[in-house]
Amino acid sequence: MKIVVCVKQIQNPEIPAAQFRIDEEAKVLIPVSGLSPVLSPFDEQAVEAALRIRDRAEEGADIEITIVTIAPKGARAAIKAALALGADNAVLLNEPTFDGGGGYVTARNLAETIRAIGDVDLILTGRQAADGDAGVVGLGIAEILDIPAITFARNVQTADGVVTVQRVLQDGIETVEADLPALVTISNELGKVRNASMRETMRAAKKPVKEWTPEDIGLDETQVGSSATRYELERLYIPVNEIECEFISGDTPAEIAATLAQHMREENLI
């Protein structure tokens, strides 16, 4: 079985707000210096989901896990991290012409890459990238490839050409299945990602990484990156919503609580 996991390399999404910078003029993120980029957390969990499928498979089952990413030239952190976790190989789309595509272009370029890889049974993506927060690329790939898609998975299992997914609902869980090939987007409820073992980390450096050009996926330069985009970024900014905080103090918790309760009563909330 061939599994493709689409991963995006991003700035660490958990940096303190005070360190986060934007160049409003150029409408771009100013990377925090000295901070290494990371695999977007939901995508890391998508890699984990693929590895769990392989762990559960019968001895001798042939499961190949391929990582696909569109990333700027030189960006290797995400691929390295995914290979160190245990993926087998990777395809990297890092020609500058791939830069700046929006959700539509990214989905299209990834879909063509998956077609070029050929005979892929299962595609895993994150529920959303932790920088753009859009949640469109995964479903886009499925629509373009005309295959079923199941979103927000916390558990993915495959057997006899069928994928069975436990999907996270706002107030519960549903079990959904589809025939392969299919696409599944992974949510954080999948749980903890394993630590990269020493052995896999050492092996990772030797795992095959192909660098593909637009031509390799059957597209020309007008069909990739910013030249194909149908998206215009009018403005990018950091909202200012700091308000003056009035601290409620008192000698005992009861005194503090009484003041708060009084405020609540004045606002008719009690």
Binding site: A17, C245, E246, P253, A254, I256, A257, L260, A261, I270
Partner: peptide, 28 residues
């Protein structure tokens, strides 16, 4: 960080403040 978006803040141990708040609301 949460105090930057808060109109009112209480610096304290939740395990003391919250039971006290429940009690004060009951009184009111």
């Amino acid at each position: 960080e949460i105090f930057k978006s808060s109109r009112f803040g209480i610096v304290g141990n939740s395990q003391e403040i919250m039971p006290a708040l429940a009690e004060e609301i009951r009184k009111l």
